[in-house]
């Protein structure tokens, strides 16, 4: 089942999401990228109703890009997250709301700090040191509560992430096979293999 994690550390945010695309009990695809790069220092992992997710993520991506083109500098992570939250909150009261859950992680280049925001389809938002969505969250959050260190170097952060993924594959009945892992820090966004 769909699962996504994100962890902050010293000067970085790691965002991870499984790569399965499923419909009912059928696995349709196993290399789906569910993490979008919204701007040079901003990542967004999305999960929820298939169709809604891609539609909403592209809508966000293009609006954030538009702001960047108009103003020459990108929207900061906190401002991006606030805008995305409002988009979901507005959608919630429409005839057909988007059913999408998000983890928005970014590096603020003017403050030199990493930020992570947990957002759900109801328009709830909170800034968190680590976060998770989907069934994996039930296992990962207690683990992260025990092992997360906001001052941890990147290697330690990745080790903590590996712990989460291992725990989920050990305990969850329907385990996602593969994960995509992306990192955002002062140098921008990059993908890593676990």
């Amino acid at each position: 089942m769909e699962t996504s994690f994100a962890i902050t550390g010293k000067g970085y945010v790691i965002v991870a999401a499984d790569t399965t695309s499923a419909r009912s009990i059928i696995k349709m695809k196993s290399d789906e990228d569910k993490i979008k790069t919204l701007s040079p220092h901003l990542l967004m992992a999305y999960s929820g109703e298939p169709g809604d997710t891609v539609q909403f993520a592209e809508y966000v991506e293009r609006n954030i890009r538009l702001y960047h083109i108009r103003n020459l500098y990108a929207l900061r992570p906190s401002a991006s997250a606030a805008w995305i939250r409002r988009a979901l909150a507005t959608s919630l009261r429409s005839r057909k709301p988007y059913s999408v859950n998000l983890l928005v992680g970014g590096y603020d280049t003017s403050e030199h700090t990493p930020h992570l925001y947990w957002i759900d389809y109801l328009g709830t938002m909170s800034e968190v040191p680590f976060g998770a969505h989907g069934y994996g969250a039930y296992f990962a959050l207690s683990l992260l509560d025990r092992y997360h260190d906001p001052e941890a170097p990147l290697e330690e952060g990745l080790a903590t992430l590996r712990r989460c993924i291992d725990e989920v594959s050990k305990r969850l009945v329907v385990t996602p096979g593969k994960y995509k892992v992306k990192i955002v820090d002062k140098d921008g966004v990059r993908e890593v293999e676990l």
Partner: peptide
Amino acid sequence: LSYDEDIPVEL
């Protein structure tokens, strides 16, 4: 209201 930040001066 939209971005939860003070408006950039140039904007």
